[in-house]
């Protein structure tokens, strides 16, 4: 893949590598530091002794966090959100991408529907009307508020429709000749050929669901229904005294706020770290496919 014809002179090469290594360290430092803090003793953390390695190793912060029912509950809400939200997103994405990938002859209303969906990306009613419509449809304080309003990721539809269009027409024509209808062409011809982009989009929406915090924060009335990121926002980032239980207040004095915060942040990061190798493998494919024009 590397197309350099002339290699860098030795000194420039060393400088280039050193600068890149420094950038890598700059990116890794905050994350490694958080991990080190979470395994350090409270006193070492508050004395500022921790940099990249735990000082006076202890798992106390993790034990405290994992014994906190509110944390566990919101971890469960987030997990459910991913398990339900991702299939909903993917099914709707596929069902919309197929008609939009047809030619004008095959689907006369294609242009209308393409604009129908794209307009929602370009223009929105804004926060307050959105909030009120969700209230009107009875979703406030319901798990489904985290799934249904964002059920169609329009940008992913564009990526998938473009990818469908890049598949050779002959394959569909051959299937149509054998009597295949639209559903058969979609499920038997196009989808099996689109596995890399489907994997990419699945990972994207899974990460998006896991990371979403704002909707949970404003659409759920009771913290018991908060997904993990909303819980972290209200308890760890912007501690709201109303959200802390007496148990929290009492225990926080026993254990440094710093190390428990780090432990909670790190636990919330773990699912992303687990899927990260797969994300990395697929997302370059996703980006390249997205730039293919129809």
């Amino acid at each position: 893949m590397n197309q350099r014809i002339v290699k860098l002179p030795f000194l420039e090469n060393v400088a280039n590598l050193a600068l890149l290594a420094l950038l890598g360290l700059l990116c890794a430092f905050p994350i490694v530091h958080t991990l080190a803090l979470s395994f350090s003793s409270a006193s070492a953390a508050s004395a500022g002794l921790v940099t990249l390695w735990p000082v006076a190793f202890t798992t106390q912060a993790y034990r405290f966090v994992l014994e906190n029912p509110a944390f566990i509950r919101s971890f469960g809400v987030s997990t459910m959100r991913v398990l339900v939200g991702v299939p909903v997103n993917m099914i709707l994405t596929i069902l919309v991408a197929y008609p939009l990938s047809r030619s004008k002859e095959e689907f006369r209303a294609r242009g209308f529907f393409a604009w129908f969906f794209v307009i929602t990306v370009l223009f929105s009613g804004g926060l307050i009307p959105w909030y009120m419509v969700i209230g009107q449809t009875g979703l406030i304080d319901s798990f489904w508020a985290l799934i249904i309003p964002g059920a169609l990721p329009v940008f992913n539809v564009i990526l998938l429709a473009n990818s469908f269009r890049s598949i050779p027409k002959e394959l569909e024509e051959a299937a149509a000749m054998d009597g295949a209808g639209h559903w058969t062409i979609l499920f038997r011809v196009l989808l099996p050929l689109s596995l890399p982009i489907l994997a990419t989009l699945t990972l994207f929406v899974a990460v998006a669901h896991w990371n979403a915090w704002f909707d949970g924060m404003i659409l759920m009335n009771s913290p018991a229904k908060y997904p993990l990121q909303s819980y972290l926002q209200t308890v760890v980032i912007n501690p709201d005294p109303r959200m802390l239980t007496e148990r929290d207040l009492a225990l926080l004095q026993l254990i440094s706020n710093r190390t428990t915060r780090a432990a909670q942040i790190f636990i919330a990061m773990i699912p992303i770290l687990i899927v990260y190798p797969f994300l990395q493998r697929y997302f370059t494919t996703g980006i390249k496919l997205g730039s293919v024009k129809g």
Binding site: G125, I128, V133, I148, P149
Partner: peptide, 17 residues
Amino acid sequence: PAVVVVLIYSYAPMVGI
């Protein structure tokens, strides 16, 4: 299904303007 979702949660808020 997508049209219904988008009408309710994207277009209805536009009316809410």
